[in-house]
């Protein structure tokens, strides 16, 4: 269980997040949604410690996360930022860097690190690409390499900031399945998503943020029923039953 208590954070003393309190269930998919600039990416950054917290605390399994060293934090929380470079390196080297928090002295990756990286590659189905340079891969494949890196990190919690950005529809659907599998393996997955339809289908736990405050958190159905979701985005949400389960489409709220 990841407990966020009264967290405020922001850039250079201007708070973006105000008094956020959330409990995020273990082994489930939590999706954070909200309109542009509401602070959802900032929340992930504050959790990882990229942005210092002004007040409040974060507890993971009873431990104060931000009292740990960055290295110890990384053993507990893996983070895939939205802005990912395409480093001039191979898939295997990138995934091996997932073992960075476990590096001791001398600062060389050991045999067991290589084994962990290899099994992460197999898990993502890209072990045949291990020696490929990352910049020759498609966006979807690169995404898989980055998720494999996060897997190699062996942290119980994985944060992903808009992992479906720039992916074509087939890779987006694959991503949904992979995220679902990660949760089934017992990982706590926290996603920031722009795509509301995908968020509603994927989330076990939905967090709606607007203007740096939590508007609602709970199951997607509750978020729909309470009206907080349509309020946050100023849209009308229409669920439709299809042979493949419930789908959603959105229309603008009519102005009076």
């Amino acid at each position: 269980m990841l407990e966020i208590r009264n967290l405020s954070a922001g850039y250079s003393s201007v708070p973006v997040l105000h008094d956020i309190s959330l409990s995020i269930p273990s082994g489930k998919i939590t999706v954070i949604v909200g309109p542009n600039g509401c602070g959802k990416s900032t929340l992930l950054k504050a959790l990882v410690g990229i942005i210092p917290c002004m007040s409040g605390e974060v507890l993971l399994g009873g431990e104060h996360l931000h009292r740990l060293t960055t290295q110890e934090q990384a053993k507990r929380i893996a983070y895939l930022p939205q802005d990912r470079r395409i480093p001039d390196t191979t898939v295997m080297r990138l995934v091996l860097h997932g073992r960075f928090p476990y590096l001791g002295y001398p600062r060389r990756y050991r045999h067991e690190d290589v084994q962990t990286a290899l099994s992460a590659l197999r898990r993502m189905g890209i072990d045949t690409l291990a020696e490929q340079p990352l910049n020759t891969l498609s966006g979807g494949m690169r995404q898989k390499a980055y998720i494999a890196m996060a897997l190699a990190q062996a942290a119980p919690v994985i944060l992903m900031d808009e992992p479906n950005a720039f992916l074509d529809i087939s890779h987006q659907l694959q991503l949904s399945n992979q995220v679902r599998e990660l949760a089934e393996d017992g990982k706590t997955v926290i996603l920031v998503l722009h795509d509301l339809a995908m968020a509603l289908k994927l989330a076990d736990h939905l967090v709606v943020i607007k203007d740096g405050r939590v508007l609602h958190h709970g199951s997607p159905d509750e978020a729909l029923r309470s009206g907080s979701l349509s309020g946050a985005f100023n849209v009308k949400i229409h669920p439709i039953q299809t042979p493949d389960g419930r789908q959603y489409y959105f229309t603008p709220l009519e102005r009076n």
Binding site: K45, V48, G49, I50, Q71, E72, Y79, P81, F100, P101
Partner: peptide, 12 residues
């Protein structure tokens, strides 16, 4: 070189 945020996420 992976970028500030990724590096931080890896515990650097």
């Amino acid at each position: 070189s992976l970028g500030e945020d990724t590096a931080r996420g890896l515990g650097m």
